[in-house]
Design a binder for these strands. Structure first.
Length: 848
RNA sequence: GCCGAAGUGGCGGAACUGGCAAACGCAGUGGACUCAAAAUCCACCGUUCAGCGAUGGACUUGUGGGUUCGACUCCCACCUUCGGCACCA
């Protein structure tokens, strides 16, 4: 390990803040045991009022830091709170246990990925229990067990039957370090998505399995509108990711053989400005066009060279475009013009048809390319009141304008701007009428590549037979168990499982002849695409889950996890839900009603991370400060969706709060009496009682609004009032202590449970009690202090009975000395009164 | 470049539907307790000007405009930060 002053060595922390002044750890252990023994967080068999709260499950990779802890604490607050409101809560947890780090660790230590994984799971589970998270461990799932992944395989087969799983050859993202292909969602800026890897991605042509997620692109996009419990940011990110664009597909005709060259464009209004065509270098047609031509060899060499370039370089900003003239020409259907056909590296094979009509006058990329290769430029959209000359053009004109040299459309306003849309629409209609092309919708989203050439994953349940081709493993033969007798996990560019004879060699289910299994495993995002449904029926051995159970609990009422999954997991699990609904497995078409994304936790400016060993660790921290301090720290620092910085000062504050609470109850015996009698209130008691109810109201409102920081602040405020309240024998004071226990419950559950038992030794768990309602009669003070402004500036205050009418407030305000002084000689022109809130006196002349 | 979110004291952050900006916490200052310190408790604590002082005035929610009796909140323009997408035809 490199010396690093920022991160502290694990297990040897010496934190600056003082530890709690009460035996936090001891008492927390006691109540954690108590909850476990009593099954406090076990799920109801048949929910009456269901509430499904779920945190994204974890990839178990060793120790757990406060970034993790924050995620699970947020879920736990909601789970405990809803339970206390009488909901039947489902709050499960499990392990996303397949994946590369386990394999890499095994390679490094010469052990087996399973060993490393199970050790990590043990550690994580211990940490979660240390934090006092109330899970129903009876529903724990683990994706690396055959009981789980057989259903990945089962679903795969169902997908296959429906044509939603298929094999194709394509140019794929290859991570040279992980030695496997990756889905588009797993490539970030041309690099591997895994933080510990981030190697530059290469392209390889391979035959692999895909899920046809594009078949659901339209529904995935449309239903985003219905996800009103999701953050707008995530909805926008998904819309961008799906990338719908409307246009037309239209055929150019190749010279000599009259072959059709289909192109996709969103700008049919520029059809008359086409001066060349361009094909993607990796488009299948590219090499074909060269075949037999004079420039065949040269062209092949160009393609080879361009495709060799790593992805990062290809997409680098402002990069010079490269192209190659094929020697062929194509005819533009709208005007019969003959234009040269190029191969150009800026054209993507995977988008649209893999070829484009190029309009240098009105597309910046085409313009740059045309200038470089001396291709003519035509201007067919003239900006209003101007006449652009092609030879003087310095950049493409991409705004709205008037169509010129455009056959029947001369004079039409067209473009992508608000004015021009109608023009494009007209051309579109015409193109269809003339039979040149058809309306098309294109998506940026591509099919989901799920094959991985790695060992530690769910085997793909397919068999390759020399006689019968690709044959699915019969359902009754599932699971296809991942063999454990593997020596070398390091893939040499081919799949690990191909080298395991006993696994790889099999017989064909169709003809009985020798065949071999598909040697690849599934992307781990497959496992996490349906796990939320498995929790509803985790032990089912006939189906992935029963429909009744799934319908009883889904959709998730509250899903909590990191924003980094916005365009990966959160799209995949929506896709799976829709397919599973179409397979008749469940009724809902969206998996999750409300989504909250949680901000990162940083330490000294660096994001906490297990793999980088940066963090404050749950084990050592709770040993010294306890779980309640950890929980309050992550909850109080900031609203959940914002990032937060972990500091010693933060710990100081929450520990001080816990100590103050503790001390308040220290000399208290069992509770005396119930709610206080308002008829016998002293003025001070009355005030305290109102403050109690106000705090109560705020705790409820803020918790439901996901503002735990202010919910805790309200409790701190109440605590401050209690400390300065003189009469410690007052029934109102007693009652406050009684209520405060409930307020604390979701946030600092251990301390709350302890105090609950102290006040009511004979009672059961606090979490089997109902969360109380505030006393609606005492939510406001009878007298309000109302600020008085003169011309919008604060000049005085008046006291008035709550609910006083405008006339009364007006009189009081105008009688106020400071107000009269401020008004002076100018005279009152107008008085605005907002009941119980504000009086504003507007004076006659310019005064002041 | 496009899309989205945000910008408030020394710091983390509050502020209902347009109605007292700065709740709560940290840090800081003063006091109590103590032989002393820590811990604890109580009080003060946006900036600036005038005043010995009590107090009073002015200013203040990224910048500049606007709407309004009144704007952290709404509108327009701009700046900055963060996040996403990006040769997508």
């Amino acid at each position: 390990m490199t010396p690093d002053s920022q991160s502290r060595p694990r297990g040897a922390e010496s934190f600056a803040p003082a530890a709690p002044a009460y035996p936090a750890r001891e008492l927390e252990q006691r109540w954690q045991d108590y909850w476990r023994e009593r099954g406090t967080f076990r799920t109801a068999a048949e929910p009456k009022r269901k509430y499904y709260v779920l945190e994204m499950f974890i990839y178990p990779s060793g120790d757990m830091h406060m970034g993790h802890a924050r995620n699970y604490t947020i879920g736990d607050v909601i789970g405990r709170y809803r339970k206390m409101q009488g909901y039947d809560v489902l709050h499960p947890f499990g392990w996303d246990a397949f994946g590369l780090p386990a394999e890499n660790a095994a390679i490094e230590h010469g052990s087996h990925p399973a060993k490393w994984t199970f050790e990590s799971i043990d550690l994580c589970k211990r940490n979660l229990n240390l934090m006092g998270i109330g899970y129903d461990w009876d529903r724990e799932i683990n994706t690396c067990l055959p009981e789980y992944y057989r259903w990945d395989q089962w679903l795969f087969l169902r997908f296959y039957k429906r044509g939603l799983a298929y094999r194709k050859e394509a140019l794929l993202n290859w991570c040279p370090k992980c030695r496997t292909v990756l889905a588009n969602e797993q490539v970030i800026d041309g690099h591997c998505y895994r933080g510990t890897c981030s190697a530059a991605i290469e392209k390889r042509k391979m035959t692999q399995w895909f899920f046809r997620i594009t078949a659901y692109a339209e529904e995935l996009l449309r239903d985003i509108d219905s996800l009103d419990g999701w953050p707008e940011s995530v909805r926008t990110m998904q819309r961008n990711w799906l990338g719908r664009s409307e246009g037309i597909e239209l055929d150019f005709t190749l010279d000599r053989d009259g072959r059709k060259l289909p192109i996709f464009t969103t700008r049919p209004d520029t059809l008359w400005g086409v001066t060349f065509m361009a094909l993607a270098p990796d488009a299948p047609l590219a090499e074909e066009l060269l075949r037999g031509g004079e420039r065949e060899e040269e062209g092949r060499e160009f393609i080879r060279r361009v495709l060799l370039k790593p992805e990062v370089e290809r997409v680098a900003e402002g990069r010079d475009k490269e192209g190659f003239f094929t020697g062929r020409h194509a005819v533009n259907p709208v005007n019969g013009e003959k234009v040269p056909v190029y191969i150009a590296d800026f054209v993507l094979a995977s988008y649209g048809t893999g070829m484009i009509m190029a309009v240098p006058g009105h597309d910046q990329r085409d313009f740059e390319f045309a200038r470089k290769y001396g291709i003519p430029v035509k201007v067919v959209i003239q900006p209003a009141g101007q006449t652009l000359r092609p030879e003087a053009l310095e950049a493409a004109w991409t705004e709205d304008g008037v169509m010129t040299d455009s056959g029947p459309f001369d004079g039409t306003v067209a473009g992508k701007g608000p004015e021009g849309r109608a023009g494009i629409e007209r051309v579109r209609g015409w193109v269809e009428e003339q039979g040149f092309g058809r309306r098309t919708v294109n998506y940026r989203l591509k099919d989901w590549l799920i094959s991985r050439q790695r060992y530690w994953g769910a085997p793909i349940p397919m068999i390759h037979c020399p006689a019968c081709g690709v044959v699915p493993v019969p359902e009754e033969q599932l699971p296809v168990v991942l063999p454990s007798n593997v020596r070398d996990f390091k893939p040499a560019g081919t799949s690990v499982l191909a080298s395991v004879k006993e696994f790889h060699e099999t017989t064909c289910p169709a003809c009985g002849g020798p065949a071999h299994r598909d040697p690849d495993t599934m992307d781990t995002f497959v496992n996490s695409s349906w796990y939320m449904a498995r929790y509803t029926d985790p032990k089912n051995d006939r189906l992935p889950f029963g429909r009744e159970a799934a319908d009883a609990w889904l959709p998730i009422d509250e899903y909590i996890g990191g924003i980094e999954h916005a365009t990966g997991h959160l799209i995949f699990f929506r896709f799976f839900t829709k397919v599973m609904a179409d397979l008749g497995l469940l009724s809902h078409r969206e998996p999750c009603r409300v989504l909250h994304t949680q901000g990162m936790v940083s330490l000294n400016g660096r994001t906490m991370s297990s793999s980088k060993n940066v963090g404050v660790w749950v084990g050592p921290f709770t040993a010294e400060y306890g779980a309640d301090a950890a929980r309050l720290a992550v909850l109080f620092a900031a609203p959940p969706d914002k990032g937060m910085d972990w500091t010693d000062e933060l710990v100081t504050g929450v520990v001080r709060f816990l100590n103050r609470v503790w001390r308040l109850y220290e000399d208290r015996g069992p509770a005396a009496g119930g709610p206080p009698d308002p008829d016998r209130f002293t003025p001070a008691e009355r005030e305290l009682y109102i403050r109690l109810n106000q705090a109560h109201r705020k705790v409820i409102a803020d918790t439901e609004a996901f503002q735990f920081n202010t919910a805790i602040a309200a409790q701190m405020e109440l605590l401050n009032h209690l400390y300065t309240f003189a009469d410690r024998e007052s029934p109102v004071y007693h009652w406050c202590l009684d209520r405060l226990v409930y307020f604390l419950a979701p946030f600092a559950p251990h301390l709350a449970e302890e105090l609950h038992h102290r006040l009511r030794p004979e009672a059961g768990s606090l979490f089997d009690e109902r969360f109380p309602e505030p006393d609606a009669r005492f939510l406001e003070f009878d007298t309000v202090t109302i600020p008085v402004q003169v011309n919008g500036k604060l000049r005085g205050r008046i006291e008035a009975p709550r609910g006083s009418d405008g006339q009364a407030l007006r009189q009081l305000a105008l009688a106020d000395e400071a107000v009269r002084a401020a008004v002076g000689a100018a005279g009152v022109r107008k008085v605005i009164v907002v009941k119980d809130r504000m009086v504003n006196v507007v004076t006659g002349k310019e005064s002041s």
